[in-house]
């Protein structure tokens, strides 16, 4: 027992050194050399200032911007220091009320649009930071954004295409539109 305790203490020390120290340092070292931009968070800078990350969504509520997934983070949407989902169950009246309110807001911003709303625009993401919406969700908003910015719908669709990532190897994942990059591209055209 005493012999085992002695070995256990020393083993814990050695393993902490290897697994908790050397291993993450080795990964950091290799990552900083090979994939430095990704290792730091795939950050976007403009005029010397960090304005976001290509992987982290931002809140958009003005009609001239594309809106992303609803976000359940506290105390404000897309709080990238406190990722969280809503955890509302499928039969929870609170979820139904939220979905209803989001649908109303989308319809109020674009009263002529009678199409069914793509479900990703009214349901909150798992992380609260989802940077993407579906292509259908971008198409749904294209006419509104074009009108607000006095751009042609075709031009807006061209920008959507530029911000769209297709399935990896044609199979993996979903085709998706990066909302922050799309909105930055929109701001850059005017």
């Amino acid at each position: 027992m005493v012999a085992q305790l002695n070995s256990a203490l020393r083993m814990l020390g050695v393993m902490t050194l290897i697994a908790g120290g050397l291993y993450p340092l080795a990964v950091t070292g290799i990552a900083q050399i090979t994939f430095a931009a990704q290792a730091h968070g795939s950050l976007i800078t403009a005029e010397g200032q960090i304005i976001g990350s290509t992987l982290i969504g931002q809140p958009f509520a003005a009609p001239k911007y594309f809106w992303g997934r609803p976000s359940a983070t506290a105390p404000f949407p897309y709080n990238a220091n406190a990722s969280a989902g809503s955890n509302l169950g499928p039969t929870n009246p609170a979820l139904i009320a939220q979905v209803q309110a989001r649908a109303q807001a989308l319809r109020a911003a674009d009263p002529d649009n009678r199409a069914p709303i793509p479900v990703d625009l009214v349901t909150s993401s798992a992380s609260g930071l989802d940077p993407h919406i579906s292509v259908a969700a971008a198409d749904y908003q294209a006419a509104r954004v074009a009108r607000e910015r006095r751009l042609s719908v075709a031009h807006v669709h061209a920008l959507i295409d530029q911000s769209t990532t297709s399935r990896t190897f044609g199979v993996l994942g979903e085709p998706r539109v990066n909302v922050l990059l799309l909105n930055l591209a929109l701001d850059a055209t005017q």
Binding site: R69, G85, S86, N87, L88, P90, L95, V119, D120, T123, S124, S125, A126, S127, D130, H132, I133, S134, G173, E174, R176
Partner: peptide, 9 residues
């Protein structure tokens, strides 16, 4: 899609 991410489906 409540509580799911678009990129995974």
């Amino acid at each position: 899609l409540e509580g799911k991410e678009v990129r995974f489906g």
